[in-house]
């Protein structure tokens, strides 16, 4: 199954290697990995999507926590969360064929962000299936997709569920069972 982890990691050289190396060592393929600055100074936020056995989630989270540079790990597989991906798609289109692509972009709530004589660039955000839907329809228009750049998934829990968020909000009495624990 697909597991999704959100990790806060120290923003310094080599951290990405340590995280990636952990998955490599467990022979687990990372499907998607996004990294960027977070609301915490000195910490980056990663969203990691990996394909592993159903039972692997606990061990991956526990192993991520063993890395010195990892401050926090949330396993958000199967919890209520908002997931988005950004894609830039370059499509071959000239003056005659543009309007069809414009219409498609409209349907998919995508934006045209660059227009050149022989091509145009579409920006689309959404869930994976929406982006793949657009690419599929574009491909049906005689190989018109020239280039695709996808950000990978970014995910955030709905509401304010994690103890860290509760702490940030000033809640001191954090109830047990908020975060995933070992599965016995």
């Amino acid at each position: 199954m697909l597991h999704t982890f959100v990790a806060y990691v120290e923003d310094k050289p080599g951290v990405l290697t340590r995280v990636a190396s952990l998955f490599r060592r467990l022979n687990i393929n990372i499907i998607s990995l996004t990294v960027g600055r977070s609301e915490r100074a000195g910490y980056s936020r990663m969203t990691i999507v990996a394909d592993a056995s159903d039972q692997a989630g606990h061990r991956i989270r526990a192993s991520l926590y063993k890395l010195e540079d990892v401050a926090e790990v949330d396993d958000i597989s199967g919890v209520s969360a908002v997931t988005r991906e950004l894609a830039l798609i370059k499509v071959a289109a000239n003056a005659e064929s543009r309007s069809g692509v414009f219409e498609l972009a409209e349907v998919f709530r995508a934006r045209i962000v660059d227009l050149a004589p022989e091509s145009l660039m579409i920006e689309i955000t959404g869930v994976e299936s929406k982006i793949e839907g657009l690419i599929q329809v574009l491909n049906e228009r005689e190989n018109r997709v020239l280039e695709v750049c996808r950000s990978g998934k970014m995910t955030m829990r709905r509401g304010h569920h994690t103890s860290r968020v509760l702490r940030a909000m000033g809640v001191t009495d954090i109830p047990d069972g908020i975060e995933p624990v070992d599965p016995d």
Binding site: Q55, H58, R59, A62, S63, Y65, K66, D182, P183, D184
Partner: peptide
């Protein structure tokens, strides 16, 4: 002491980590 060892090789009934 290492949570990553729980249920790694043998599934257990109670883990006192």
């Amino acid at each position: 002491i290492d949570p990553a060892e729980i249920n790694k090789n043998i599934p257990v009934d109670v883990a006192l980590v």
